[in-house]
Nucleic acid binder design. Structure first.
Lengths: 131, 131, 131, 131
DNA sequence: GTGGTCTAGACCACT
DNA sequence: GTGGTCTAGACCACA
């Protein structure tokens, strides 16, 4: 799985790593039970510091997406282990709101936004099924 | 239009102001041609620093949502003046992607995510029509 | 409030800080609404690194004991804001179990252990009421 | 006696082994004079490294709970041989303190904590009498 | 070899 | 001046 870092972005590097790992899992490039690269290896690959990757892994653990086993690596949790709590859905909805509002104000119709959402979903889903 | 600041959030205050102004416009509480309160007044109302509001206004200008005229204040642009450029749509799509991916990974179905999106849209739209 | 670090202990420094802040709050030396010293100040006071204190603060935030407001400090949450969730009680019970078991195996009676627990509680409570 | 290892916990495996042996003795599943399985056998049963079990046995010896005799294995000491020293009680009290403090700060009453403690004790005691 | 912890520095965004 | 982020090193416990 390829991870691309853009250090000049205003999104923190650790957040970029987090997002791309999530997308990688969504795309099916990594599956439950898989072990992620060690923090040192991934850091070396990306050319960033170990701590930056470490922070990303811990963020993913907090999101319930993976389990960090001390001294043996980070493992992607299975769908059963991942609880889709109402809080998590609310969190996503909360983050969705300003995006939708901005789209509306700029003149996008509900169809355009829905279409965009479906496209994003389909892109990820398609890759997942293609695996 | 009421703006509520929550300083304990990790979202910067200027970003909170920006979002709520966008949502206010989306809801129809403010219309094209309307003049926003002066930076000084809004800052006083919210109990925040003048620079914070100023930054928010400039962010809105960069997004193409309003025009800042020295001395005469910030004016909301009309739909015609606001171009819905492909770049803007792409930007929104780019921001949408990690949210959708996280939802998927946590086990949400496309229906759940779509439903969430529609709900957010409807909330804003409804308010707009009620005005 | 005085915090004493013993670097030679096997308990990590950040954990020692966390515990002593919790005990300080239990003792009533700090109250809800109070702002903790800045990470840099406390780190300087304790002679440890900023990051170490930072980690402790974040641990306290994760426990629901305080709120970190970016760029303005860490504030102790009120009892109402702090949820005593069943998970938290379970966590404490889980940590209690090996201590009780060890006491039993070493020959302590339930009375001795209960007495010890009450003593600890009373020590903290007493200080709290004395404030 | 069954020992269950959960490698995903942040508690080191050797510590998990130590605790479960203590609990096993508290529950009466093992009695003074009994010989524990050899380091090699137990390690094989648990699927862990020999050194891990070895470390656990030595920790138990340091706590005064068993005696390791070269060649003839680890033998659980009798209650008479196990001294309940004030130092040991202090050690337990020291470990108890942060747990009680955290419970207090999160809003638990002395009754809740006492009840929890009794429950833990009763669970162990009950099993012991049932043997 | 792994993650955990810690140090000592740095720049930045926000207030 | 605050916390957030990042870097570049280091030692340790665990497996």
């Amino acid at each position: 799985m390829l991870i691309q870092i853009e250090p000049q972005l205003d999104v923190p590097i650790y957040e970029q790593v987090t997002r791309q790992i999530i997308e990688g899992i969504a795309r099916g490039e990594m599956k439950p039970g898989d072990t992620l690269p060690s923090v040192r290896n991934l850091a070396a690959d990306l050319g960033v510091n170990m701590h930056t990757v470490n922070k990303s892994y811990h963020e993913l653990e907090a999101k319930g997406i993976l389990t960090i086993r001390a001294k043996s690596g980070a493992i992607i949790r299975s769908a059963e282990e991942r609880a889709l709590t109402p809080e998590q859905l609310q969190q996503i909805e909360k983050n969705l709101k300003p995006l939708v509002a901005e789209g509306m104000v700029l003149g996008a119709t509900v169809d355009q936004i829905e279409c965009m959402m479906k496209k994003v979903f389909a892109d990820l889903q398609m890759s997942a099924e293609g695996v």
